[in-house]
Design a protein around this nucleic acid. Structure first.
Length: 561
RNA sequence: AGGGGCGUAGUGCAAUGGCAGCACACCGGCCUUUGGAGCCGUGGAUCUUGGUUCGACCCCGAGCGCCCCUGCCA
C-alpha cells in the first residue's frame, strides 16, 4: 500500500481544512499537533489521534508537533515522556525538532493571564473549592457570581503576582476568567485559569507554584506554536467556546479546534486510569503485557504499525461514538502478516507418529521456502525428517466425522513438503489416551507429491521428534470476557469482567530453524497462527507469543455442525 | 431537566436533493502442498412521525434513543 492510498479516504476534517484553504483562512498553512499528557502509556486510541494529527499534516504538506501537555505536575512522570516518544516513532511518525512542553510556555502563559487581568477579564477569587462548586450552579440552574468578581485590576494584579510568589497556601486562591455565571455551558461559568500547587514539576522543578488549567494552557500553547487546526476528541466540543474565548480575549493567533470520535475496542478498556490500575494491581505483567491495548503491548504481542494504521484507516474518521470490534483489528494484523511473515512449522499439542517402514537410523533434510506465500522470494530453511515425528493431536481422529480431511485409520494425508503417510495403527495408554500413531509412508511421494497424481485432501504440519526443540508458547485471548467492560452492572467493577483464561502457557515442539527467530518479525506457524519472539526468550529457552490465530474454517464448520 | 453532540446492514464508514455503496463479519461456490491466502457470488440497513419537493439518508417541524458536561484533571 502506498502512502497515497493510505491517506486517500476523505473525512469531514479534511473537508473542513480544504474549505479553509479555499478561503485562504490560514494562508494555506496546515499545522497540527499531538498533545499527550505524560501520565500513562499510549494506547491504540491514541494511535488514532496520532494518525489523524500526523496524516493531516502530511496530506496538506504541513507539519505536526509533538507537545507534552504537562500542566498538572502531580499526575505526570518523565518516564512516560520517553515511552510516548518511543511509541510514536514506532508507529512511523516523526516530529523532527518540534518536540515541546506546555510547561516551557509557563512564562508566556503567565503574561497572557496578566493581559486578561488588565483587560478586566480575569480576577483572583478567594472562594474555596467547595464554595466554588456551590456558586457554579447546576445543569439546570444558573450559577452565582463570586463576591470577589469585581476586585480592581490593581488588586488582581497584586494578588496574582503574590500567588506566583508563593505567598498563599494551596487552594486558598485561584485566578478565574470573568465570563458568564449564567451560561448554560458550565465551562463558561468563570472557569479557573490558574491554581496554586506547591508541587515539583518534572520539567520546571520548583520554579512555579501556580499552574495553568488545561482550558487556558491548551489553546494558548496551540497559538504560540502557530497551530492552525487543533484536532481533539468529542468530549472537548463543550470546551471549544472557551478555547475561542481565550484566544480572542488575549488577542493572539486563533487556531480552529475540530473534534472527532475516539476509538474504542470491544473486550478491552481504554481509559488510562483503568489501564494503570491493571498494571499497578498486577492484573497484567506491565504496560507492555501483550494483552494490553497499549502500543507497547500490541508491539510485544506481534502487531505491526502497518496493521494498526490500516485498522484506523478502515475505521474512518467521524463523530459517531462507537466501539470497533476487535476481530476487525485482528483481520488487519492477519492481512499484514500473511504477506510479510516467514513460515515455520511448530506443533502446539504434540502426539507422536511412528513411520514403521522408514528406517530407524535414517534422516533426511528437506529444503523448504521460508515464504511459501510469495514465490518471488527464494529464502529457505532446512527441515529434518526422521522415523518419529510429532503432529497436532487434533490432526488425528480415530473415528472421524464426514469431511474430516486429516489423519485417521486407513486415511492418507500429506506431511507438508515431505511424504504421504497412511495411518495403520493406534497405541493407547491405560486411560485410553492415544500415545502413538503408527503409519506407513510412500517413498514415491517425496517432497509431498506423487507421480501417479492421486489426490490427497489433507496436508499436515509436523516436526521430527528427534530434532524438535521445546519452546514456551504463550497463547493470548481477550483480556475481558465481556464485550464492553465499561458497562458495569450494579455493584460490580470492570475488574469483575476480566477473562481468567486470557493467558495460557504451553510447551510446543518447533522446528530447529526457529532458534534463529528474530524479535520484531512474526512467523506464521503453519495452520496455527502468527507468533513472535518475546523479549523473555533466550537461545536456551525460546519463548513465543501468539499474536493472532489463523482463521479456522474447519473449527467453525465443526462447531456449527 | 439546561447545554453540546450523534443516530445508515451484525460492526465500522460512505452517499453533501437524483439508482443507498465500501470494508470486515455472515452464507454459498471455485481453487489450494497451510481447511491459511486468493478468486467468484448471495442475502441483509437510512430511529419514529409529519411536512417541503417531480424526487429526501440529505432540507424543515415534532418526537424517541444513545454519548458528553456540575475537577482548583486532561
Amino acid at each position: 500500500m502506498t502512502q497515497e492510498e493510505m491517506t486517500s479516504k476523505n473525512n469531514f476534517i479534511w473537508e473542513m481544512i480544504e474549505e479553509d484553504n479555499r478561503t485562504n483562512r490560514f494562508s494555506g498553512v496546515v499545522h497540527t499537533r499531538f498533545p499527550p499528557e505524560p501520565n500513562g502509556q499510549l494506547h491504540i486510541g491514541h494511535a488514532k489521534a496520532i494518525y489523524i494529527d500526523f496524516e493531516t499534516a502530511r496530506r496538506f504538506g504541513g507539519q505536526c508537533n509533538l507537545r507534552m501537555d504537562d500542566t498538572n505536575p502531580t499526575k505526570e512522570d518523565t518516564d512516560y515522556v520517553d515511552a510516548i516518544q518511543r511509541d510514536i516513532k514506532w508507529l512511523g511518525y516523526d516530529w523532527d525538532d518540534r518536540f515541546y512542553y506546555a510547561s516551557s510556555y509557563f512564562g508566556q502563559l503567565y503574561e497572557y493571564a496578566v493581559i486578561l487581568i488588565k483587560k478586566g477579564l480575569a480576577y483572583v477569587c478567594d472562594l474555596t473549592a467547595e464554595e466554588m462548586r456551590e456558586y457554579r450552579g447546576t445543569l439546570t440552574e444558573p450559577g452565582k457570581e463570586s463576591p470577589y468578581r469585581y476586585r480592581s485590576v490593581e488588586e488582581n494584579l497584586d494578588l496574582f503576582m503574590r500567588m506566583k510568589e508563593g505567598e498563599f497556601p494551596e487552594g486558598k486562591r485561584t485566578l478565574r476568567a470573568k465570563i458568564d455565571m449564567t451560561s448554560p455551558n458550565l465551562n463558561m461559568r468563570d472557569p479557573v485559569v490558574y491554581r496554586i500547587m506547591f508541587a515539583e514539576h518534572h520539567q520546571t522543578g520548583d520554579e512555579w507554584c501556580i499552574y495553568p488549567m488545561y482550558d487556558f494552557a491548551h489553546p494558548l500553547s496551540d497559538s504560540i506554536e502557530g497551530i492552525t487546526h487543533s484536532l481533539c476528541s468529542l468530549e472537548f466540543e463543550d470546551h471549544r467556546p472557551l478555547y475561542d474565548w481565550y484566544c480572542e480575549s488575549v488577542g493572539v493567533h486563533h487556531p480552529q479546534q475540530i473534534e472527532f470520535a475516539r476509538l474504542n475496542l470491544t473486550y478491552t478498556v481504554m481509559s488510562k486510569r483503568k489501564l494503570l490500575q491493571l498494571v499497578t494491581q498486577g492484573y497484567v505483567s506491565g504496560w507492555d503485557d501483550p494483552r494490553m491495548p497499549t502500543l507497547s503491548g500490541l508491539r510485544r504481542r506481534g502487531y505491526t504499525p502497518e496493521a494498526i494504521k490500516q485498522f484506523i484507516e478502515d475505521n474512518g474518521i467521524a463523530k459517531n461514538n462507537t466501539i470497533a470490534d476487535i476481530s476487525r483489528l485482528e483481520f488487519n494484523l492477519r492481512q499484514d502478516l500473511e504477506a510479510r511473515s516467514p513460515r515455520a512449522m511448530a506443533v502446539l499439542d504434540p502426539v507422536k507418529v511412528v513411520i514403521e517402514n522408514y528406517p530407524e537410523d535414517k534422516e533426511e533434510m528437506f529444503e523448504v521456502p521460508l515464504y511459501t506465500q510469495d514465490e518471488t522470494r527464494t529464502e529457505s530453511r532446512e527441515i529434518p525428517f526422521s522415523r518419529e515425528l510429532y503432529i497436532e493431536r487434533e490432526d488425528f481422529m480415530e473415528d472421524p466425522p464426514r469431511k474430516y480431511f486429516r489423519l485417521s485409520p486407513g486415511q492418507e494425508v500429506r506431511l507438508f513438503k515431505a511424504y504421504y503417510i497412511t495411518c495403520t495403527d493406534v497405541v493407547k495408554n491405560d486411560e485410553g489416551e492415544i500415545v502413538e500413531i503408527w503409519a506407513t509412508y510412500d517413498p514415491e511421494s517425496r517432497g509431498g507429491m506423487s507421480a501417479d497424481g492421486r489426490r490427497v485432501k489433507g496436508t499436515l504440519h509436523w516436526v521430527s521428534a528427534r530434532h524438535a526443540i521445546d519452546a514456551e508458547v504463550r497463547l493470548y485471548d481477550r483480556l475481558f470476557a465481556e464485550e464492553n467492560p465499561d458497562d458495569v452492572e450494579e455493584g460490580k467493577t470492570f475488574l469483575d469482567y476480566l477473562n481468567p483464561e486470557s493467558l495460557s502457557v504451553i510447551t510446543a515442539k518447533v522446528e530447529p530453524h526457529l532458534v534463529q527467530a528474530q524479535e520484531e518479525i512474526a512467523y506464521q506457524f503453519m495452520r496455527k497462527g502468527y507468533f513472535i519472539v518475546d523479549p523473555d526468550s533466550t537461545r536456551e529457552h525460546l519463548v513465543f507469543n501468539r499474536a493472532v490465530a489463523l482463521r479456522d474454517s474447519w473449527a467453525k464448520m465443526a462447531q456449527s455442525g
